[in-house]
């Protein structure tokens, strides 16, 4: 009972955080899908991007693509 009130209070404040995380994740997934070759198997990168919060997509942006730019 107490917890549900807390979550309802949290939602409007946490919404921007979740939205930004989703945007970053989506960009990373699209780039991963479009990339001709990634460093390492593509499905591993997809799992990393989806399941490792924030750091997964960042790792992909920095190290995942073979020919950057």
């Amino acid at each position: 009972m107490n917890e549900s009130i807390v979550i309802a209070d949290l939602l409007p404040i946490l919404a921007p955080i979740i939205v930004i995380q989703l945007i970053i994740m989506t960009i990373a997934l699209v780039l991963c899908a479009k990339a001709e070759s990634t460093r390492g198997p593509k499905w591993v990168w997809v799992l990393i991007i989806i399941f490792i919060n924030i750091f997964g997509p960042i790792a992909f942006f920095i190290a995942g693509r073979r020919n950057e730019g």
């Binding site: 970053i24 960009i27 990373a28 780039l31 960042i58 942006f61 730019g69």
Partner: peptide, 11 residues
Amino acid sequence: RSYKLLWVPLV
């Protein structure tokens, strides 16, 4: 093109 302009500010 490398989306740096987007993801770095977002982070």
